[in-house]
């Protein structure tokens, strides 16, 4: 089992991003995903600059993968995705089928992100034929579903070539919209959003009227209010054949979270990280329950 670092899902300043990766490049993650996956208007790094940053980091011993937008509508957005797909050397994580098309036309291998909606081995098999090398399980799937999919993959004799990754830590990306909920919160239209999400490096918490943390608004993306935390289940993931546990960057404590995950995986340290959590933990999806539920102790 190895650790991967997902793309930064929030709008952080350029300096913050550079400092963040400077810290993470020496951390125990084996894989780093880089790129803007939520909103094309966030331009701390333009696509060409993400590629440049990825090349620089790529010389320092970790696998660097460029991650593409999950919702591609405008021509300019598609242009940015094309730029990443034709970078010429680095592996790309496709988060929309449009990116799969661009990569397979170029006969390039790719990682299939969670939003490709791979719910069964038949879909896996088809995408493997097009260049898929690693897939990220859809966020809402359970341990049981994953076991079944990997069992079917064995029956279809496609499991040898395949790596599996599971979103294991962080606010889970749950939905993508035409609307920007951060702009809406400020009564601004999306076309004139004034890049308000820059003010919310951990998103904007949305509570029920009873003050229950429910969702996190992050521009056009809606995330879980609770923080997915699958470390208590890491042995099950490993037994099923999961290759990578993905940690999603948060503004605080990401390095400590990575270290704690690493210690648990390699030195059998405890899996409780409650003092590092800014929101309640959850693991419901993994256990076939509502995603927000917490079953194991954090």
């Amino acid at each position: 089992m190895q650790l991967s670092l997902g793309p930064i899902l929030y709008f952080w300043e350029r300096d913050t991003i550079e400092q963040f990766y400077e810290q993470m490049i020496d951390s125990p993650v084996e894989v780093i995903y880089l790129g803007e996956t939520v909103c094309h208007k966030r331009r701390s790094f333009k696509p060409a600059e993400w590629i440049e940053l990825a090349r620089q980091l790529g010389t320092r011993g970790k696998q660097i993968i460029l991650s593409t937008l999950a919702l591609i509508e405008a021509g300019s957005e598609l242009g940015g995705v094309k730029r990443l797909c034709s970078n010429g050397e680095l592996l790309v994580e496709a988060n929309d089928i449009g990116a799969v098309q661009l990569l397979s036309e170029r006969k390039l291998p790719f990682v299939g992100g969670a939003t490709l909606n791979i719910y069964n081995a038949q879909a896996l098999k088809h995408l493997l034929g097009m260049g898929l090398r690693r897939w990220v399980m859809p966020i809402e799937l359970s341990r049981d579903a994953l076991a079944d999919i990997l069992e079917d993959a064995r029956k279809l004799a496609i499991d040898d070539e395949l790596e599996t990754e599971v979103f294991s830590f962080g606010h889970m990306p749950l939905a993508y919209s035409a609307r920007c909920f951060t702009a809406l919160h400020h009564n601004l239209p999306k076309d004139d959003c004034q890049l308000k999400c820059r003010d919310y490096p951990e998103g904007l918490a949305m509570h029920s009227q009873e003050d229950e943390e429910f969702f996190t608004l992050n521009g056009i993306q809606t995330q879980s209010g609770n923080i997915q935390h699958l470390l208590p289940h890491w042995r099950t993931l490993a037994e099923l054949g999961v290759d990578f546990m993905r940690i999603s960057p948060q503004p605080e404590h990401t390095l400590e979270v990575v270290q704690r995950y690493h210690q648990a995986l390699t030195a059998d340290a405890g899996t409780s990280i409650s003092e590092l959590l800014s929101s309640p933990p959850c693991d419901g999806y993994w256990l076939n329950k509502p995603g927000k539920d917490i079953i194991a102790r954090a």
Partner: peptide, 21 residues
């Protein structure tokens, strides 16, 4: 639907059941 169809898990996050599953 305000979310992209097929890419919305809000319902399963709350209830365990979503349009996809």
């Amino acid at each position: 639907c305000v979310m992209v169809e097929g890419r919305c898990l809000l319902s399963s996050y709350a209830t365990g059941e979503s349009p996809n599953t």
